[in-house]
Design a protein around this nucleic acid. Structure first.
Length: 295
DNA sequence: TGGTATGTTCCAAA
DNA sequence: TTTTGGAACATACC
């Protein structure tokens, strides 16, 4: 699912269409994943204006005109889409009677829009300009959370790796405070917020570090390279509008620039050694065994 | 059919 | 106490 660069791209894309809009109605078809409860959130959002759309870690954040916030986490397969209200023939958009499950047609191939009707719709925002924003999520792992206290809701998250304040010394401190393998450490949102499986592998490759290295054993130069690797790969991915691997996230082209993720068996772009797939911390992990030697 | 999946969380074991 | 491994969540794709 989307990591920091994909979420950032989504936020930038929908920002001009959402900021200043008023929410007429919010309806979730998957109350289990809506906190603190479908009815409460629907009531709280009704009539509110979206004043700002931002990102924190992998959360899309709608800041509302009463100071409250709506946090959307896409997890593995969530997407934000637009449901265009009227077809040219004046036929109203199909409401999708129950749970928004796939309406038969357009089953084979193609993006969810091939049939004109998005699949797996879990929540809907009706806006004051007649447009409808949809939260679609095949796997139902996504989460929508309403809060009056954004700081409290995001208190557990680590620093933003692209923030100015995130200096090499900051990373050094985070790494030295624990003795964990680098890969699961970097994936831990409480340590650093926003990295996922793709960009963790890519950052470690750029730093020339093996993903199973213990975090407290890096010297200052290695920390500096990792810091650089994280920031460079995230910035390049944002410029590339994220990584498109499968049907879940369209529109990006970072996949052409990946060095190790998804390149098992292909030659390393630096040294030609075939890329190897490992399992570390239950996650598929990709390395160049020559550029990222173990210790 | 079985294995895998861009994520997070909870629990048990080391 | 900290770290690691496994399972669970629910579905689609190869």
């Amino acid at each position: 699912m989307p990591e920091l660069p994909e979420v950032e791209t989504i936020v930038r894309n929908c920002r001009p269409h959402l900021e200043g809009r008023r929410i007429l109605r919010f309806k979730t078809h998957w109350p289990k994943n809506t906190a603190p409860g479908a009815a409460t959130v629907a009531r709280a959002l009704s009539g509110r204006k979206i004043v700002q759309v931002t990102r924190r870690a992998k959360f899309v954040v709608f800041q509302l005109d009463d100071g409250a916030c709506l946090l959307i986490h896409l997890r593995m397969s969530g997407r934000l889409e637009w449901d265009e209200p009227q077809s040219k023939a004046g036929v109203p958009a199909r409401p999708g009677t129950h749970g928004g499950d796939g309406h038969g047609g357009g089953r084979r191939g193609g993006p969810p829009h091939s049939n004109g009707s998005p699949r797996h719709v879990r929540a809907v925002w009706d806006l004051d300009n007649g447009r409808r924003l949809l939260f679609c999520d095949a796997r139902k792992f996504g989460r929508i959370r309403y809060t009056r206290d954004l700081a409290a809701a995001t208190r557990e998250l680590g620093p933003e790796p692209l923030a100015r304040a995130f200096a090499p010394a900051c990373l050094e401190k985070l790494l030295a405070a624990r003795r964990r393998q680098l890969k699961p450490l970097l994936l831990d949102q409480r340590v650093i917020a926003g990295l996922g499986n793709i960009y963790t592998d890519e950052a470690l490759f750029r730093a020339g570090l093996h993903p199973a290295t213990s975090s407290h054993r890096l010297d200052r130069e290695q920390v500096r390279r990792l810091h650089r690797g994280i920031r460079d790969v995230l910035r390049l991915a944002i410029r590339s509008h994220g990584t498109t691997i499968d049907w879940i996230y369209p529109g990006g082209w970072m996949q052409r620039r990946l060095n190790v993720y998804g390149r098992t068996g292909q030659p390393c772009r630096t040294c030609g050694t075939p890329i190897v797939a490992l399992r570390i911390g239950q996650r598929g992990t990709h390395i160049c065994p020559r550029c990222q030697p173990k210790r």
